[in-house]
Design a protein around this nucleic acid. Structure first.
Lengths: 235, 235
DNA sequence: CAGCTAAGTTAGGCGATCCTAAAATCAAAG
DNA sequence: CTTTGATTTTAGGATCGCCTAACTTAGCTG
């Protein structure tokens, strides 16, 4: 019953603790910047499911704290400090997801929401202990790379199954993690990180893709395929 | 990145989720009521380290939600619903503490603060899985009883080492859990739940107590002794 | 280059939670 | 029964984070 204090765990390696909403904004901005562009107010708002007007305010606050560079009407960019904070939160999130699956028997479709809450409450020490107990995982259960304690991350390539050439065989690297129903479906198809998939057919006009996964065959829509990140298979 | 919602995990078995501060108030009120009295504004304020004026407001809000009965200037009492919520938070807190010690190698002096944050973020399911993994513990690392999923709790008797008779041998049942430094000291003395202690001497005027713990002997102040709960030893 | 649209910001609010200072109430003692 | 001191509440503010509505700006388009 300490009361009185902020939300996040420890002063973060350099600075006062961030509020949970601030951490969420930084994660969202980080994700948008992966596409190489400055994060637009609208994009941030959409990702966080809040009104664009709310974003202007928070972004100003983040800028005051030196976490983002902000120019009115121009979108925001993370500063080094902001990027560090974002990666720290991302590490927490993904370590927690991995831990829930490997140590507590969670299904990969149920870890996201739990991690979304715990990431703001867990101390660095807890995260590191969790990571240690499950053998310092390199990705989360959906294949997303886990930043190191030092904030280095190996970002996943952006090729998706929707981009694959007909006849090519690819290795599933990562899948989108937020929709439990989709995850259960992908699981039932065997479309998970590590699986080898051959694209045998693509119907015209953005039609369904026919896939061979091991012995099985299935057909998926292109929007689902676009949520499956792949790399060239080794042979 | 769901955003948007409250703080606690799930609608709680009957009702909307409580905010973290609300859960903290209920825990504090529960603790005060263990002494058999209605919780006074001042007592709540002191436990939560906030100004008494702030308590009046929150208590009114808790009453509006049907969690406490509140009569101006008369203190508050938990309603059944409020007590259920308090016990649910207490269960979370204590299961988390036990899990951190047994599954993640935490020292008993470091679990309190971590649990204080996680208790507001963990889902019921997570708590239950944690409890299961470590074998459904009955007490936390400090000997505090863990409420069941159904909200039953076996409250610890209130006898302390400071109340023991000179010459008597008692069994340590539970120790106060909030001060890490004190916990480390108690640990170094072997004064932890399960230890048998014989009170060999008590200096006059509230002076130090001389204890025999196994082979060792030590002297502790009466205020420290008052933080060690004991039961009569079995023989 | 004027005008339109989409995007972004400002204005004004609300609820939660905390604070300080001042007023009210209770209770205990004379 | 009154005084007094401690407890509690009210009054008035502040911050954070979110909302809606209305206004502004950027930038394309004709």
């Amino acid at each position: 019953m300490t009361g009185r204090k902020r939300n996040a765990a420890k002063p973060a390696p350099g600075g006062e603790p961030l509020t949970a909403p601030a951490e969420d904004y930084l994660k969202a901005i980080y994700a948008i910047e992966l596409d190489g562009v400055a994060a637009a107010t609208n994009d941030i708002a959409q990702r966080l499911a809040i009104a664009p007007a709310s974003v202007s305010g928070m972004v100003q606050r983040l800028a005051d704290h030196g976490l983002v560079e902000y120019e009115r009407y121009r979108g925001v960019r993370l500063t080094d400090q902001g990027r560090r904070a974002a990666l720290r939160t991302l590490r927490r999130h993904r370590v927690i997801e991995a831990y829930l699956v490997r140590a507590l028997g969670y299904g990969w479709d149920r870890v996201h929401d739990e991690a979304e809450r715990l990431e703001h409450a867990a101390s660095d020490e807890l995260i590191d202990r969790m990571a240690e107990v499950i053998g310092e995982p390199v990705t989360d259960p959906h294949g997303a790379p886990i930043p190191t304690r030092e904030g280095k991350i190996a970002e996943t390539p952006r090729w998706t199954l929707a981009d694959a050439a007909v006849g090519s065989t690819t290795l599933v690297v990562r899948v989108s993690d937020e929709d439990p129903g989709m995850l259960r479906y992908l699981d039932s198809l065997g479309l998970k990180p590590g699986a080898e998939v051959t694209l045998t057919e693509r119907a015209p006009f953005d039609g369904p893709l026919t896939l061979a996964i091991g012995q099985a065959t299935c057909r998926v829509g292109s929007s689902l395929a676009a949520r499956v990140l792949v790399a060239p298979a080794r042979d």
